[in-house]
Design a binder for these strands. Structure first.
Lengths: 147, 147
DNA sequence: AATATAATGTTATATTGTTACATACTCAAG
DNA sequence: CTTGAGTATGTAACAATATAACATTATATT
């Protein structure tokens, strides 16, 4: 994300917290800034390192709590297969996430379909399952890395 | 899986290794047995514990190597969001996996679509991405646990 | 037997994530 | 203005997951 986009995202967080009666605090703000500024998915301990450059180096707990908060409220997503985090690019809360991950360079593209593909939806419906959220991660080699 | 199904799966592994010039070894066999026998996804360290009941308790490396082998050859899958493993239920190698995971009881159902849903396929094609594999994990509450 | 390859054994360590309990901040009711 | 409830952070210890590095053993082929 560009610096401008990050600033906008941070303002969105501030507004969101105000509206919901949640607190807009330094750990939450800085964690989001760091994740949004990263070109690739960033691990929690790398967030700690980055945060250490602008404040006292935080304890894991601090960052994990901020991450949990930001995830719950849709500002970031976890790429499970990498144990790493990216800023949400969709601009609104959604129950499904989809990522295309290059195994070579590690870059990730968020796809963002609004609905679970219907073959899967059918299966979910048939079994009486009540879906909370879903995630798809597609691995392979991006165009650049094939050259 | 039932004991019979496990036995059959183990024979499949043995045959597969024979055909491919790979080795059918105790760590590989026992790791697959343990994972297949588990009602739910089982973590690597629980595999170590279980394996310890039938042989000398193995080191993590031993089990992680067996897991890697079994994954590469399609006998097991990792549920990334749980850091845990399940036996493949599809009976053949496939590039995509889909799981429906109950957040309450932890049971997992493997869906097994043969193809990436077309909205995603389209996106992949458009970006010139060369897909290696893909994985979908659907979380929520199963019918039983809703009662 | 000599060699190459595949696989395991062993030790140590790196990485990721959580628990438990104390302290501080914010807001609203008395 | 203060007390109480709820929200959030600070701190220390630790648990869970995963990998690296190097030695040894097994298997098949020549």
């Amino acid at each position: 994300m560009t610096k401008k986009e990050i600033q906008k995202l941070i303002r969105t967080l501030e507004t969101y917290c105000g509206d919901k009666g949640l607190r807009y605090t330094p750990p939450r703000r800085i964690t989001l800034e760091v994740i949004a500024a990263s070109k690739r998915p960033i691990g929690a301990y790398d967030v700690i390192e980055e945060m250490g450059k602008v404040t006292d180096k935080p304890k894991p707990t601090t960052v994990y709590r901020a991450i949990e908060f930001l995830q719950e409220h849709g500002f970031i997503h976890k790429i499970e297969s990498l144990s790493a985090f990216v800023a949400c690019h969709a601009g609104h809360n959604h129950e499904g996430s989809q990522f295309i991950v290059c195994n070579d360079c590690g870059t990730v593209e968020e796809v963002h379909l609004c609905h679970l593909p219907k073959d899967l939806q059918k299966k979910v419906d048939n079994t009486g399952f009540k879906m909370a959220h879903w995630n798809t991660e597609i691995h392979g080699t991006c165009q650049q890395c094939q050259a």
